[in-house]
Design a protein around this nucleic acid. Structure first.
Lengths: 226, 226
DNA sequence: GCACTATGAATGAAGG
DNA sequence: CCTTCATTCATAGTGC
């Protein structure tokens, strides 16, 4: 309730930036893409969980009906939970394709194009033309707003006390910035759960998990701790 | 404090975008996003390690409790509290102003109004246009709903169990793509729709975790430029 | 501590 | 295209 310390946050951010702690170049698009990718990762993880459960079940009972029973919590993914969702939502794969097409500079979603896209996307799940159309519309509008970040010429020497205001102005259109109540600085990047490094080493040695995507930018972070 | 005209920034941003090369230092916002994502990543790693361990152990001991124990948290990984990501919350003062504006019959929060509101609210704490926008949107939707709900008398008994119990609160942030997609093939995120437990065992035994799935989409990760 | 609630935020869809 | 609505997700705060 006492989150009335916006100014402070701004100062902190400024000092941190000045320290060169997180000076990274990355566009919003890239950020978004990264987010999507990791999202896929999360999904995969869940899927793995399901598999694991299946394996476990296999050891006990070889019955096939176990599928429904054991994966009950995960049935959400399996699909049809009683009634169909009223709202369409792209599957990760579809999303991938859509993103790709979107980035291809094919800014104009023409009817013809949509038809093609549809035929491709329908391979990965149910989809309709309106879905695609809407998606592109929304995507475009969104990315338009996303473009509002620190303007380049903001790198003026005077970055002192004015920082908070500058921040405000740097994200005019859309800022899902949740400072306001961020007394702590950005020292803690991620929780780094109590994972035994040994375990991680075991699998990381046999199969390179983390490297598969090879996100160079991550090098700037303490990912090595993982 | 309108000395900072958001519009000005917008123009600047536009020109930068027009240049087609909007390289910029990461904002706190971006930083937050990235941190969060990495957090998820870290969590996933942990879970993967656990699972791997569980599976390995299972080969030796027939005890199922181990597997179950490890599996549960895996599915519930969604609980990822990740890092402290504070979402914006209006300060009491801001809230007052917002409420007042809302009651003023200013039911339609147009872009221009938002800008005005912003410049006023920013004096009392960090805030962005999106925050204001969302606030009004939510506010309106909420009051609208509150009105229709208290009259269930005439309402037809919606026997839809569709509203599933979301109390499980263990929903991953990425479950947005529930289903709705493929009754016939929901291999959405995975190359193989119906995964054979046998295959899983094979890879789990070999140790290479990520290779098995060979997520095609990931190959397209266009972050090479990053 | 876990479950519930309130609410900020994301996004698909519709309207103009 | 741009704006708006509706639905849903995620999380912070709160009560058991």
């Amino acid at each position: 309730m006492e989150k009335e310390n916006p100014q402070k946050e701004g100062v902190v951010g400024a000092s941190a930036a000045a320290a060169g702690l997180y000076m990274k170049v990355m566009t919003d698009e890239q950020m978004e893409l990264l987010r999507r990718q990791i999202s896929v990762y999360a999904t995969i993880c869940e899927k793995l969980a399901e598999m694991h459960k299946a394996i476990s079940a296999q050891h006990d009972l070889s019955g096939m009906k176990l599928g429904a029973l054991h994966c009950d919590p995960l049935m959400a993914y399996a699909g049809h939970k009683i009634t169909a969702r009223q709202r369409w939502s792209p599957t990760p794969l579809q999303l991938q394709i859509l993103e790709r097409i979107f980035e291809e500079g094919n800014g104009t979603p023409s009817k013809q194009k949509i038809k093609e896209i549809i035929s491709e996307l329908s391979q990965h799940g149910q989809i309709s033309e309106t879905n695609v159309y809407n998606w592109f519309q929304n995507r475009r509008a969104r990315s338009k707003r996303k473009q509002s970040v620190p303007a380049p010429n903001n790198m003026e020497p005077e970055v002192e006390a004015e920082t908070e205001f500058r921040k405000d102005s740097t994200k005019p259109e859309d800022t899902k910035f949740y400072d306001n109540s961020a007394p702590r600085d950005h020292d803690v990047y991620f929780p780094s759960p109590e994972v035994d490094p040994d375990e991680l080493i075991s699998w990381s040695a046999s199969g390179s998990v983390m490297e598969l995507q090879s996100v160079p930018s991550w090098g700037g972070f303490d990912v090595g701790e993982l």
